[in-house]
Amino acid sequence: MTAVAIRTQNLTRTFETVRAVDGISFEVPPGIVFGFLGPNGSGKTTTIRLLLGLLEPTSGSAEVLGFSTATQSDAIRQRCGALLEHTGLYERMTAEDNLEFYGRVWHLSPAERQQRIHELLAAVGLWDRRKEPVGNWSRGMKQKLAVARAMLHRPQVLFLDEPTAGLDPLAAVALRDELATIVRQQGITVFLTTHNLTEAEKLCQQVAVIRQGQLMMIGSPDELRLRQGGSRLEIVGRGFTEAALSVLRQQPQVKEVTHQDQHITITLQDEADTAPLVPLLVAQGVQIDEVRRGKASLEEVFLTLMEEDKHVD
C-alpha cells in the first residue's frame, strides 16, 4: 500500500463561470475515514468525480493510491468503490441481482460472489430481503444496499458521497453504525463527504472543510475544535449578575462569556487555567450547581468557519 492513499495538488475544476473546486491541496493517509465537509454546492461531489477520474481537472493534479487521475483513471476505478450522489441501483432487479452484476463486473469468482453477497447483505441486515426488487424499498434500505455494493470487491479506497443524506434520523444512525463496523472490519480508506457534522465527528479520523470550492481547514476533529474553538467551560447555577460576568470577562484566561438562562459558557484562551474561575464566581455571589469543561463541537467549528468566510466575502 502507498504511504498516501489520496493526494491533491492545487486541484481546480471550473464550469464556465463557476469555480467548483478551487486549488485544493490535501493528503489522506491510508486506512482512515477522511471526512470532507461542506455545505451544499461547496464542491464535494465534484472533488469525488475528479478523484475517480470521471471529470478532468481544469488545472492541478490528483493521485489516488499512487495513480494519476488524469492518465490512470482506469487503475483507480479498478481499486476503488463508490457510493455517489444517487444509489445507482437497478430498481427492477433484486438486491441479489444488483450485487451479482457488480460482482461480475469486478470479476469475482462465482463462489466468491456468493460468499461476499451473503456476508455483506447479512452485515447490513438485508439478507432476508435479497430476492425482492429494490424499487419498492425505503431510501435507507437502498442506501445500505448501495454501501454493500460499493464494498463488494474489497476496494482499497471507498468514496461515499453523503451516504446518510435524506435518511430519517433512525435510519441515518443505523447506517452510520453499520458503516463504522464494516469499515473497521475491512480496514480500508474511506473518503466521506457530508454536511452532517455528527456523522463526521463519529466516523472520521481526519476532516477537511470546504466552502465555495476552497479548502478552509484540515486536521483531526480534535485539532479543528482546538484550533478554531479552543476549550470552554460551562457553568450551571443561579445569580449570574452583570457585575459577576463583568469580573469574569476581565480575567486573562477568558476569551468570551455568553449567558443564557441559568448557565454560562466561557470560551477560554489556549492552555488556560480554569481553577480560579469557580471561586471567583462564588465570591461574586453565584450559586454553582454544575461545572463542565469541554471543547467546541465540530458543528460549532464548522458554523464559525462558514460565518468567518461570509464576513470575508
Binding site: 475517480l52 470521471l54 482506469d74 476505478r77 479498478q78 476503488c80 463508490a82 455517489l84 450522489e85 444517487h86 444509489t87 445507482g88 441501483l89 437497478y90 430498481e91 457488480y102 463486473v105 469486478w106
Partner: peptide, 14 residues
Amino acid sequence: ERHTLETLLASRLS
C-alpha cells in the same frame, strides 16, 4: 434517467 449511469461509469468497466 434512473440515475444509474454515474455508478456504472465509476466502475472498472472500460
